[in-house]
Every structure is written in structure tokens, then in C-alpha cells.
């Protein structure tokens, strides 16, 4: 586990940002993934006092604070009313309820894990993130960036009627995914997202009217091998899962 010498409860986002400019400092999310690191941290920065633990619904969008837990989004009635089982499906496989009561949306996004269920599913929706300094930017842009020293404050999810279906394959039900796929549609425009390739999730749009859409879509992604699966299997699974997700969304 990491070690930490100091702890600061940030009183403003700006203060958190200032502390976070030092490389030896780190923002404390839920602690679930941070504890896997052996870092020697100078100061832990806590965002708990910044009211970032709320899910707020507005006319056009949801605002989800960085400190909202995975369990919060899983059980939130307003999110369920707008996105059906989507958020539940996104997190239900992640370890267990106690873990999801700790792990935060902000921590999950900022880490940009390759295996991230959250990043894969959210990239299928129309999302933006808000950072202390860079301000608002599309999630896909943020996801592609290298981790930097800015502070993620919240996530915005557009309520524009986009529908998404999420499909994964795992070795065991609570393992990280072997491959994660999402397909979404808005006004006939389709989007495919593939994560755990094992590289980070990426989104591409596709046109199902094209008879070759599935091979073209899958070819837009790169795949690799690791302990959980080979490149060949992942490529094969991408075809299977994207086809299934597309069929599911068409049938909805």
C-alpha cells in the first residue's frame, strides 16, 4: 500500500488544484485503487468537503460529482428513469456492494483504466467532464488525454434521449472484463465503444445500413493480449458483443 505523510481537506476546488500541482501529492477518491499503488505520497488531498457527492438532475443533463460513489449511481432513481438499467449494468460486476460504496466516479474516470467498465459505458452516452482549470470538455477528449494534474470536479451526462446497451465478457462474474462493449443510438446515429482491449475504451460511430459495418467497426479498434485473453479472442468477442448490443438496441 501507499504511504502518506499529510492530509488536507480542500476547502475549494482551487485549493485542491494548487495542492495537486505537486507530483508527490495525490487526490484521494474512494481509496480502492489508490491502495494498490506503492507510492510514497506527501499530501493526500480530500475533496469530501466540496459537495461533490451529489447527483443532480437538470433539464438538459445530469451533474454527477466526482465523489459520488459507484453504488450511488447504481441505485439512483433519476438515472434509472432516464437511462433504464444502464448505470446499474455499468457497475454491477465491480467487486461487490462494499467496494462500490467506496469507489468514486471521479476516481474511476481520472485513472482512465483500460479495463474500466465506467469509461466504456459512459463513452457510449454524451458526456462531459468539468475540471478545475481546463473547465468543461467532452469525456472522449478527457479519456484520450494522459493523466495530468488538473482536478476532475464532476461529470455531465446529457439527457438527449441517447439509448445505450452494455455488454461484457468476464472470466468470473466479479472480475474485470475480458472485453467491454457498448452500443448507443441517437436519431439513427450509432456509436460503438470498446474497452478492455485491453487498452482504454474508445468510441467510433458506425452505420448499420452498411453491410460491412461490423467488420469495419471492429477494425477501427486495436486489440492486444494479456493474462486474461489473447488479441485473437478479443477481436472475435468484439464482433459478437457489438452485434449483440446492436441487436438489443434495435429491439428496444
Amino acid at each position: 500500500m501507499f504511504t502518506a505523510q499529510n492530509y488536507v481537506m480542500a476547502s475549494s476546488l482551487e485549493e485542491a488544484y494548487t495542492f495537486n500541482q505537486k507530483k508527490a501529492n495525490a487526490i484521494l477518491g474512494g481509496g480502492c485503487f489508490l491502495r494498490l499503488s506503492k507510492k510514497r505520497i506527501h499530501t493526500l488531498i480530500d475533496l469530501s468537503a466540496l459537495s461533490l457527492d451529489k447527483i443532480e438532475e437538470f433539464d438538459e443533463e445530469f451533474r454527477i460529482g466526482a465523489m459520488v460513489t459507484l453504488r450511488d449511481v447504481e441505485t439512483n432513481d433519476a438515472l434509472r428513469a432516464s437511462f433504464g438499467d444502464g448505470f446499474y449494468e455499468m457497475v454491477r460486476h465491480i467487486v461487490g456492494v462494499q467496494f462500490r460504496n467506496c469507489a468514486t466516479i471521479g476516481g474511476s474516470l481520472a485513472a482512465r483504466f483500460g479495463f474500466s467498465d465506467i469509461l466504456t459505458f459512459l463513452l457510449a452516452l454524451d458526456c462531459e467532464v468539468e475540471l478545475a482549470h481546463a473547465g468543461r470538455m467532452p469525456l472522449c477528449e478527457y479519456a484520450a488525454m494522459k493523466p495530468d494534474r488538473d482536478v476532475l470536479a464532476c461529470l455531465y451526462v446529457k439527457k438527449n434521449g441517447r439509448r445505450a446497451v452494455y455488454q461484457t465478457v468476464r472470466q468470473t462474474k466479479t472480475d474485470i472484463p475480458v472485453l467491454a462493449c457498448a452500443v448507443s443510438v441517437l436519431n439513427g446515429e450509432y456509436r460503438a465503444v470498446v474497452g478492455a482491449r485491453p487498452a482504454r475504451a474508445m468510441a467510433v460511430s458506425f452505420d448499420p445500413a452498411d453491410p460491412d459495418w461490423i467488420s469495419k467497426t471492429v477494425n477501427a479498434f486495436s486489440f492486444g493480449s494479456n493474462m486474461r485473453a489473447s488479441e485473437e479472442y478479443r477481436r472475435h468477442l468484439a464482433v459478437v458483443l457489438l452485434t449483440r448490443a446492436y441487436n438489443a438496441i434495435r429491439e428496444e
Binding site: 494498490l36 461487490g96 472470466q171 468470473t172 462474474k173 466479479t174 474485470i176 493474462m227
Partner: peptide
């Protein structure tokens, strides 16, 4: 050893 934790060496959970 590559799978030296419960994160990498998976034993059955009750969902399996």
C-alpha cells in the same frame, strides 16, 4: 508469478 492477488487470481464468488 503474474496472478499474485485476489484481483488477478480469481476464486469463485457466489455469483459464479
Amino acid at each position: 508469478m503474474q496472478n499474485n492477488s485476489f484481483m488477478q487470481y480469481k476464486i469463485p464468488s457466489r455469483l459464479d
